[in-house]
Amino acid sequence: MAKVTSKSSSKTDKGIVIDIGITAKDREAVAHELAKMLADSYTLYLTTHNFHWNVTGPLFNTLHQMFMTQYTEQWQALDEIAERIRALGHYAPGTYAQYGRLASITAPDDVPDATEMVRILVKGNEAVAKTARAALKRGEDASDAPTVDLLTRRLDVHEKNAWMLRSILE
């Protein structure tokens, strides 16, 4: 399992002590869970954007627009997640190799049909929701309210996206 990196568990890379009321150990644990959230979120973002570009069929306009709405929102969230990791004193993962080690989901290798795209995105949003719940639990255990708030908002988005996508399949 890839680890979130920091030059010191209690200091920034310039040696400044971080004293925000969360222990170094808890900050590292929360940052690691957030790194997994970032990896899953980035993978889902990339998949959603890919499907936006490549969807075809009778639901083209509906799915093209829905996917654009979803990937645009996801793109904005990536920055919030990465910045929270940095606020905890750790470096945010930012390479495909790191995401490959951290993510619980994978992007498809080919372009599926529209119905399969929707199924993949339902599963992807549900997987991100599960990752968010695990990170949220870690944040609650550390009394890290900003992380809990961030993850609560992400859960709402991904559960709603999964529901909307699932409704297309019914």
Rank of each mutant, 00 (worst) to 15 (best):
residue 112 P to Q: 04
residue 68 M to T: 02
residue 134 A to W: 06
residue 114 A to Y: 10
residue 88 L to F: 07
residue 87 A to Q: 09
residue 89 G to P: 06
residue 106 T to V: 03
residue 133 R to Y: 15
residue 119 R to T: 06
residue 73 E to G: 11
residue 110 D to G: 04
residue 68 M to C: 00
residue 76 Q to E: 13
residue 127 A to V: 01
residue 85 I to P: 07
residue 70 Q to E: 08
residue 64 H to V: 01
residue 64 H to A: 01
residue 63 L to C: 10
residue 94 G to C: 10
residue 136 L to Q: 14
residue 112 P to K: 05
residue 132 A to D: 01
residue 70 Q to R: 14
residue 116 E to S: 13
residue 136 L to Y: 14
residue 59 L to K: 15
residue 103 A to E: 04
residue 116 E to D: 12
residue 135 A to V: 10
residue 101 R to E: 07
residue 121 L to C: 11
residue 61 N to Q: 12
residue 81 I to M: 06
residue 110 D to Y: 09
residue 135 A to P: 09
residue 97 A to N: 00
residue 101 R to W: 05
residue 73 E to V: 10
residue 132 A to C: 12
residue 79 D to W: 08
residue 125 N to E: 02
residue 117 M to I: 08
residue 91 Y to H: 11
residue 104 S to W: 04
residue 57 G to L: 12
residue 100 G to D: 05
residue 88 L to A: 06
residue 125 N to I: 04
residue 108 P to H: 08
residue 126 E to P: 03
residue 125 N to V: 06
residue 82 A to D: 00
residue 57 G to M: 13
residue 124 G to F: 05
residue 112 P to H: 01
residue 124 G to M: 05
residue 101 R to A: 12
residue 70 Q to W: 13
residue 121 L to G: 09
residue 94 G to S: 11
residue 112 P to N: 02
residue 60 F to E: 00
residue 65 Q to A: 08
residue 85 I to C: 09
residue 122 V to D: 02
residue 135 A to R: 12
residue 95 T to G: 07
residue 122 V to K: 05
residue 124 G to S: 09
residue 136 L to G: 09
